[in-house]
């Protein structure tokens, strides 16, 4: 009887503790969500509602037209059609380039033996230490001398040369976990090394390839510094640059700025929810951020 009461008390205590923890989590979660909720709320208001005190959370009636006004803003030479198209082109090629070149190089480092391999791999890891600001200026001068300024080439081309040591490292670590007998058997069957890479190792590695794809997508979608350096004319702007230009013109029209921000964030949020498994696994397994 005494035992039963003790258990009961312990159980109630555990329940109360659980409720308190859930309450704290909900509170923190709500605070994290406020910026998003406030963005959505503001994006659906008319300009007088935007400045109302106390702030109104539910705009009524919702002004969906704000999204159209933000998409094709008056007084700016381009619509978001242009920015979206440019961003899609750059993001697509960079993601493709990153996957193809990093996996190719990682295969060499992970599964083939050659002189100097370990030294070169340490060199590769060492390049992660150098901040981008060091190489940024000579790269700019190089691309300028090639006449590539105000084109997408400086943004895209380096990605086809395994420029991200992080990607190579991640793929190499994964390739190392696959049994070497796979390669040996394939060689006996008359496969070339390229066949082993393309037809055996790559199909087995799609989870880590997906991780790199989602990281690359997010990175390129959000990237601001590189487009800022290389793209000058507005018809070449990416979403990040276009949005920044938008704020310089529409700085006080918060409802339109929030609608434009929402347009930029929506694809990221969608990709994030589809690919969240890969984000979380990618970070958890390597302990690194993208």
């Amino acid at each position: 009887m005494v035992d039963f009461n003790l258990n009961q008390a312990a159980l109630t205590r555990k329940k109360i503790k659980g409720i308190i923890i859930l309450g704290v989590i909900c509170l923190f979660g709500f605070v994290m969500l406020i910026p998003f909720l406030w963005m959505i709320s503001t994006s659906l208001k008319i300009s007088t509602e935007v400045f109302a005190t106390p702030p109104q959370w539910i705009p009524w009636p919702p002004q969906w037209i704000n999204y159209l006004s933000a998409w094709a803003p008056k007084g700016l030479p381009e619509t978001f059609n242009t920015y979206l198209k440019n961003t899609l082109i750059i993001t697509f090629f960079n993601t493709l380039g990153a996957i193809v070149s990093s996996s190719f190089v990682a295969f060499g480092f992970a599964r083939l033996r050659f002189k100097g391999r370990d030294f070169l791999f340490i060199l590769l890891l060492g390049t992660m230490m150098i901040p981008v600001q060091v190489t940024m200026i000579p790269q700019f001068i190089l691309f300028r001398s090639l006449g590539w300024i105000d084109t997408f080439l400086p943004l895209i081309v380096p990605n086809f040369f395994a420029i991200s040591a992080f990607n190579v490292f991640l793929l190499r670590q994964f390739f190392m976990t696959l049994p070497p007998e796979l390669d040996e058997a394939a060689l006996i069957d008359g496969c070339s090394y390229f066949d082993i890479y393309w037809r055996i190792i790559m199909p087995l590695s799609w989870p880590v390839v997906a991780t790199i794809a989602v990281f690359s997508f997010v990175y390129n979608w959000n990237d601001f510094l590189n487009p800022l350096i290389y793209l000058n004319s507005s018809q070449n702007f990416t979403l990040a640059l276009g949005l920044q230009t938008f704020t310089t013109v529409y700085g006080s029209s918060y409802h339109l700025m929030m609608a434009a921000s929402m347009l930029m964030l929506l694809p990221i949020i969608v990709v994030f929810f589809i690919g969240q498994k890969y984000f979380i696994e990618g970070i958890a397994t390597t302990g690194l951020k993208g």
Partner: peptide, 27 residues
Amino acid sequence: ESVWGYIFIFPWILGLLFFTAGPIIAS
């Protein structure tokens, strides 16, 4: 195997020369 090894890492060698090591020295 060695030859193929160098072929596989060749894109990175080029990238290193033109986009990393070269710019580091230039900088």
